[in-house]
Structure formats: C-alpha cells, structure tokens
C-alpha cells in the first residue's frame, strides 16, 4: 500500500513536473528576453524632421515609463532615403539591441534603389515590430489661390494640362505617388516639382512659385490658422475630426487612400521572444498619455498593429506603390 501511495505520489509529482515543463517554456520564454544593454534606436532621417520627432517621443517614453529597463539612445543615420539606416540594421542580424523607426520610404526606397553588387535590403528583410500611428496627407494651396476647392482645381488642371505646378518630395517618395495617383484617377497632368524638405517647399508655395503641394496636416496647421494657406482635401478614408469641413479625396471622386505610417522595426532573425517583448513595449507606449498627446498635436490617426499585421500592411502598401510606380515608368520589374 505504502508503495502504492508512494507511486501515486511519484506519478502525481512527475505529472506536475511534466505539466510545468510543458507549460512553462512559453510562459518563461515570453519573459525570457529582456534587453541587457542599451538599445540603439536608429532614426533613418535627419534630426528635426517628422520621423525624428516620433523617434524622440517613443524613445523617451520607453525610457521614462521603464517599458525597457535600459537606455534607448536615439542615433541619427540619415541618407539614401532610409537605405543607409536599413543597411546598418540589416547588418545587426539576430541582435535584439538595435531598433529603427520607420515610415513610407522604408517600403518605397527598396522598390527603386539598387546598389550595384549588393542585395537590396527591403522591408521584408527586417523584422517589423509594429505600426503605431498614421500621418495623413493633405493637399494645400495658398490662401488667395483662385480655386475654391479640389474639384475646381482638378477642373482647371484638366482644362489646361501641365499648367498647375505641384510641389513634393523626390519622384518615388510617398507624396509623389499620391500626386501620381490623383493625376491618374482624375485624368489630369500636373507639372511635378521636387523639393528638398518642407521648408523650401512652403516658401515656394507662399511665394507663388508653385500652385499646390502635399503635406501633413500638422505642418499645415499654423499656416491654416494664420490664413496664409488652405487645405483642399485629405487622402484618408474619412474626414479628420479637427478639420470637419475638409473633404476626403474619395468624396470628390478620386478613390484613393494614402497615408504614411509611423512604426518600429528590428534587425532580421531576432528571436520570437524579442519580437513579442518589443511588440508589447510598443503597444504600451501607444497607451500612454504622452504618446496620445504626440499623435493629437501632430493630427495623426491612432492605430496599433503588431508584428504580423504590420508586415502584412506594408506588403500590401508595397504592391500598390509598385503599380503606381510602373504607371510612372519607374520601379523595378
């Protein structure tokens, strides 16, 4: 009997141990990754820009709220439309102490840029952690421009092809694709003038050297308030709450939605535990008041997509963009 009791005990114990062993690894595993040294948080564009603001905000929230137990210094590696930073991160294969912030060019640059003798690093080569917000794209004209709304402007553009000068970033940039899509959807032709940086372009619009440009609502806010510029339409799926009077492109007959994401990516080949860890940290950041204020100040649309969902979103974005680029006669086959 005693033996029996003992054997029952042994069996119970071993079942317990086994079940613990069976259950524990995932449970322990999820917690098993914790960064042990400072995380290099790479910003692929220059200090002072929109993505730099995102990087500073996310980095400082992660540090101050202790979402990561280590420092997260922001490192600026601008150049090559993100290609420099992406190459840098891809070289850190499997190292979970590197992160980078991402936006449109993260997907678009690899579609056009090849470095001879090198494999092109695409968004698929890096590990997407999550998407944390959308920056909308608005069409802006000078306040005293002759067109009352986007419809009038498109009609004017149609009446006289290539008469309207549309300012934007380099051909192949997120905003250039928006312009190309509008032109295609409305059947018009613009004179597209690339500028380097928003400052130069704002000055050109105010000086009357271009007629219309695309920009983000937050950059336009002060000009709209001061009544020096007017926003005509937004390329979002519904109207921006703060600008209820501004129609979407969809409403005026251009069926397209284009927005720039703000997200985080990591080097290729990092463990599933590390991905889960950062995904969780990023989610927690989006739930803080400081981040909500950042989105609200920047008139951005809140969203959270985890690793899988974000990768899928970017893949779809890449497909749409590639089609537009082929229409423009660029992009790789």
């Amino acid at each position: 009997m005693q033996f029996n009791v003992r054997s029952i005990r042994v069996i119970t114990l071993s079942v317990l141990v086994l079940s613990v062993l069976a259950l524990a690894p995932p449970a322990f595993g999820a917690a098993s990754f914790v960064p042990t040294r400072p995380i290099e948080f790479v910003c692929p564009s220059a200090a002072g820009g929109g993505l730099a603001r995102f990087s500073e905000t996310v980095g400082s929230i992660m540090e101050s709220e202790k979402f990561v137990p280590v420092a997260m210094p922001r490192i600026y590696k601008p150049g090559g439309g993100f290609a420099v930073a992406m190459a840098y991160i891809s070289e850190k294969k499997g190292n979970p102490h590197f992160l980078m912030s991402t936006s449109g060019p993260f997907v678009l640059t690899p579609l056009t840029v090849t470095l001879s003798g090198k494999k092109t690093i695409t968004h698929k080569d890096l590990t997407m952690i999550g998407i944390m917000g959308f920056d909308e794209v608005v069409m802006v004209v000078k306040n005293d421009a002759p067109w009352k709304d986007m419809k009038e402007l498109l009609a004017a553009a149609k009446a006289k092809p290539k008469s309207l000068r549309f300012g934007g970033s380099y051909v192949g940039s997120p905003d250039s694709l928006v312009v190309a899509s509008i032109a295609k959807a409305a059947g018009v032709e613009f004179l597209y003038v690339p500028f380097q940086g928003g400052g130069e372009m704002n000055a050109a619009l105010l000086g009357g050297h271009i007629d219309i440009m695309s920009s983000s609502p937050s950059d336009m806010m002060p000009h709209v308030e001061a009544k020096t510029m007017r926003m005509l339409a937004v390329a979002a799926d519904k109207r921006i709450p703060r600008f209820k009077d501004m129609p979407t492109l969809k409403e005026i007959g251009c069926d397209l939605v284009r927005r720039t994401h703000r997200g985080i990516a990591a080097p290729p080949g990092i463990s599933a535990e590390a991905v889960a860890y950062y995904e969780n940290a990023a989610r927690k950041v989006t739930e803080t008041g400081a981040f909500k204020k950042y989105l609200d100040d920047g008139i951005m649309t809140p969203v959270f997509m985890g690793s899988t969902q974000a990768s899928k979103f970017l893949d779809e974005y890449a497909d749409v963009a590639l089609n537009t680029m082929r229409d423009l006669g660029m992009g790789k086959k």
Binding site: G80, V113, L115, S116, V171
Partner: peptide
Amino acid sequence: MDAFSGLPRLTFGLT
C-alpha cells in the same frame, strides 16, 4: 541620392 529621382548616383555600390 539624386534629389529628384531618389536614385543613387555615382555610389559605386558603397552604402
């Protein structure tokens, strides 16, 4: 990077 086409120019494959 060419400021107009966004394409690399005279980079000889060097990042």
